[in-house]
Design a protein around this nucleic acid. Structure first.
Lengths: 245, 245
DNA sequence: CGCCGATTTGAGTTCAGTCAATTTTGGTGG
DNA sequence: CCACCAAAATTGACTGAACTCAAATCGGCG
């Protein structure tokens, strides 16, 4: 999970597609690999942006912090995802980007990124899919932030994350591990950690999910959980998961 | 405001940039102009997507509807904005797109749109800025949906909309018109129309804003309103408003 | 003029937040 | 291995902001 500082990579995933990084056009993927320790910020809101971050391994989060210090996670950024924190001015970052776990990333200046996209239609298409998936996720989550109950928000989060982990090979049948605290889930769903706890316990009590040590989740009754989340898992997967070309 | 069905346009705005549509590369802008009456859906969640919508004039909204029929507005799409409802599968729409007012739009198939972007770096850059602005707005709003009070959400919405109307010449000093009902604002902020009413009344009582007939808004005390919204207007404008090149 | 939707206001309810105490967990150093 | 500490999780009691239900008024339009 924690490769050495300047790790050598040969193949790299963007969305559902794999790229051979020996291609000179994609050189930047090889020469800009960085290892980031857990809980470290890669970038903070208002700082100099103008670069994108491709995740090779690990979990990142994007977030915003209110003036009173409350945090809202905007998205989790997983293997094959591309975080673009750039605001409308094209220069500053409009988001915090933080490593949730130890992570391996490529950080690429926007100018170079644009060159790469222009040179590789396949990369451009993969990037399109990744962006579309992110937009779809944000919309789904905004719907629940604005209109959903605590149960619905958390149920949705569990389903979304399980669907995203599946193509990464991190979903075993109906079980998966979340490298998150209840506070993370609260910041993700707009709830307090206390209420996340209560709600998860209720799910467990009702037999909808099971939990083992530190966020090993097992969905026991996907039908019930989907009902609570207000979601059809198959349709959702198609909308938020990048597909191979 | 309501040009004829197949209006002739010569110049067109994307973000903060203007384009001469006589350029053959941008032909599609001229040949795909449509007038859409208020309250009509251009596209619904799950339908065939694969096209983008450029707004020439008027207000559109993008939204999601829960299985129980509750609506969450995701964004307003104004002159110079580009709505891309495409989900991760690249085919279906992940959003509803609806005309809030009578509107004039270009609807362009994704394949053609990509050709246009590849052919015109200026257009591609303008599109980048527009997308970045939208992402920044969504993040700001997610922060308030998840963590903000009703007052904060509505104050933020008023400031965001005033900032977006300014470059369109629709902000007069500190006054502007919103072609919205309180229900729209509720769907936008994740509140009930009743509570929007109460909160707006409180703002008026406290002298923060004034309202005249049907949503003519006047911000009397921007300092106080910004405080409530938890926002620095100048910084926000830079992050959510596309800038000229 | 009458109708329907939007707005306004009041009264009561409820879901999630706050505050607080306790237990569990994981990591660290002796 | 064990003692200790800090962070995370759990649970209870209470509070409060936003929701629901309901009624009255306003406004535009056929």
């Amino acid at each position: 999970m924690i490769p050495s500082q300047s790790a050598k990579i040969t193949a790299l995933r963007i969305g559902a597609m794999n790229f051979d990084v020996s291609d000179t056009m994609l050189n930047s993927f090889r020469t800009n690999v960085q290892h980031i320790p857990a809980n470290k910020f890669l970038l903070q809101d208002g700082e100099d942006g103008g670069k994108i971050i491709v995740v090779i391994d690990g979990w990142l989060s994007t977030s915003k912090t209110s003036l009173h210090g409350e945090v809202q996670l905007i998205d989790f950024v997983l293997t094959g995802d591309v975080a673009d924190p750039t605001a409308a001015d094209g220069k500053t970052a409009g988001l915090d980007v933080e490593a949730v776990t130890d992570a391996l990333v490529c950080i690429i200046p926007l100018t170079i990124w644009h060159t790469m996209l222009a040179a590789s239609p396949k990369l451009a298409r993969a990037n399109e899919h990744v962006q579309a998936a992110e937009r779809a996720r944000l919309s789904e989550r905004m719907l629940r932030l604005g209109r959903g109950s605590a149960e619905s928000r958390i149920a949705y989060a569990l389903i979304e994350l399980s669907l995203r982990l599946r193509p990464l090979g991190l979903l075993e049948n109906v079980s998966f591990h979340l490298p998150l605290t209840q506070r993370h889930i609260g910041d993700f769903t707009g709830l307090t950690a206390v209420h996340v706890c209560r709600t998860l316990r209720r799910f467990v009590r009702n037999g909808v999910v099971e939990t083992a040590d530190h966020m090993d989740i097992r969905i026991n009754d996907l039908k019930a959980l989907s009902e609570i989340a207000g979601v059809e898992p198959a349709r959702l997967a198609a909308e938020i998961t990048p597909v191979p070309d």
